[in-house]
Design a protein around this nucleic acid. Structure first.
Length: 416
RNA sequence: GUGGACGUAGCUCAGCUGGUAGAGCACCCGGUUGUGGUCCGGGAUGUCGCGGGUUCGAGCCCCGUCGUUCACCCCA
């Protein structure tokens, strides 16, 4: 009886050579600007107490109500695979007392997140995000800095065909004032049951509906932007002026809706043109009450999450990155067993000096080994046999020019 | 979760109105004596996603299932 072939779980994204190199490049590029701005790493668990998300992300959100991987562990605890990064980061900040220390707390993180959705292009059940959080400052300048960091990441990959959309969700009083007006307006509409019940949970959702009928119906709906309190309005105006000063272009989108309940004030989203239905490559915003909600100090914060999978897809769609061959510095071909011992040692030495060095294993013919060297993408090749061991020198062959030069084994490192 | 399309060698795909599988690329070996990329010769590879059904006979038809993909939904 043949063994059943085991496949990866449905909808996970995975990266294997040679494309994994692009993934690595994209992930590192996205987070590099945060490092340069003084953000520090936080490495967190991929699973948390379920309550962290129902309280932090919001019990009414789709993410919490129907997309979480929740299970009971052996100690009868309800555990959930993290669907996003901010709640866990806040939990850790509070647990380690960072919110009682020097402010702002500036952290970055990177890793896998989980959502049990139906898979689609750019939407996976396990996906990768990098994110940052800046906690403990209300200064609109840091809103602009956070947005600028995300933008710098995308730009450094070479992405061009994306746009930044921003809005302000205001403070609690702004939203309360608007919510009443909006519900009154929605009450005048003739909606199907599903839409109506969604509207009751979060009326802002209707702004995001893609159906033409709803779009038209919502065209005259009151906008939150027009109900901002004086403080919220001033804050948002400042953020915009800083973005202008940074020469970061943005589109005001007063109808933007975010799926996580904790967002307040400045909120933003990066949308890419070439990605189909799953076009958001990153997003984030300010959260005024999340820290307190999770039992920490009453501090406001702002952060973002950028989709590594989608940024990679976008970069490929734009043709700004492509798989190139693997390149190494040196390929060493040992002839015979005593040569192998020396080569093993030599390779270790060169690698210690930071050189990428591969060895021809398997005792194959020289011709075959040369072919292997060619295919490996090595810039240089040396053969080590009895002659070389006796003379302590090797012919260093440049694979692109075909030219060899004689160098002593000792000085090989300088010749690479 | 709902609906549509798809699932044949590592990859891209072909396979006529059902008669038990092929191409290109890639891969492996060789073209003698210690040097690759071209060329020539040779070679391996698939339980045709999986399970069941119809049939004398199924990669081709039917059902189920798993997966992929696109849209809805949702969002990174």
């Amino acid at each position: 009886m043949a063994n059943k072939r085991i496949q990866a779980p449905k909808g996970v994204s995975e990266y294997v050579p040679p494309r994994s190199k692009l993934f690595e490049f994209v992930r590192e590029s996205l987070i590099a600007p945060a490092r340069l701005a003084g953000y520090q790493l936080m490495e967190l668990p991929v699973f948390e107490d379920t309550e962290l998300f129902s309280r932090g992300v919001g019990a009414s959100t789709d993410v919490v109500t129907k997309e979480m991987y929740t299970f009971t562990d052996r100690g009868d605890r309800s555990i959930t695979l993290r669907p996003e990064g901010t709640a866990g980061a806040m939990r850790a900040v509070i647990e380690h007392g960072l919110d009682r220390g020097r402010l702002p707390v500036k952290i970055w993180y990177s890793g896998a997140y989980f959502r049990a959705e139906r898979p689609q292009a750019g939407r996976y059940r396990q996906f990768y995000q990098v994110g940052i959080e800046a906690i403990g400052l209300d200064d609109p300048a840091i809103d602009a800095e956070v947005i600028a960091i995300a933008d710098a990441g995308f730009k450094s990959i070479g992405l061009r065909q994306y746009r930044l959309e921003i809005t302000s969700l205001g403070d609690a009083q702004s939203r309360a004032a608007h919510r009443n007006e909006l519900l009154n307006y929605i009450a005048t509409l003739d909606l199907d049951e599903a839409t109506a019940s969604r509207a009751l949970i979060n009326p802002l959702r209707l702004f995001d509906d893609k159906r033409e009928v709803i779009k038209n119906a919502m065209a005259q709906a009151p906008l939150l932007m027009d109900y901002l309190s004086v403080a919220s309005r001033q804050h948002f105006e400042k953020v915009k002026s800083y973005l202008d000063a940074l020469d970061i272009s943005y589109h005001l989108n007063p109808r933007m809706v975010r799926g996580l309940d904790y967002y307040t004030g400045t909120t933003f989203e990066f949308v890419h043109d070439l990605l189909g239905a799953q076009s958001g490559i990153g997003g984030g915003g300010r959260y005024d009450s999340l820290m307190a909600e999770l039992g920490g100090q009453e501090l406001s914060g702002i952060g973002f999450g950028l989709g590594v999978d989608r940024a990679l897809l976008a970069a490929e769609a734009e043709g700004v990155i492509a798989i190139d061959g693997f390149v190494s510095d040196l390929f060493i071909i040992p002839l015979g067993d005593s040569a192998m011992q020396i080569v093993l040692e030599l390779a270790t030495q060169l690698r210690g000096a930071g050189k990428i060095v591969e060895i021809a294993f398997g005792d194959r013919s020289l011709k075959t080994a040369m072919k292997a060297a060619d295919k490996s993408g090595a810039r240089n090749v040396v053969v080590v046999g009895d002659q070389e061991i006796a003379s302590q020198s090797v012919e260093l062959k440049n694979m692109s020019t075909g030219v060899s030069v004689s160098v002593t084994i000792e000085s090989l490192i300088n010749a690479l």
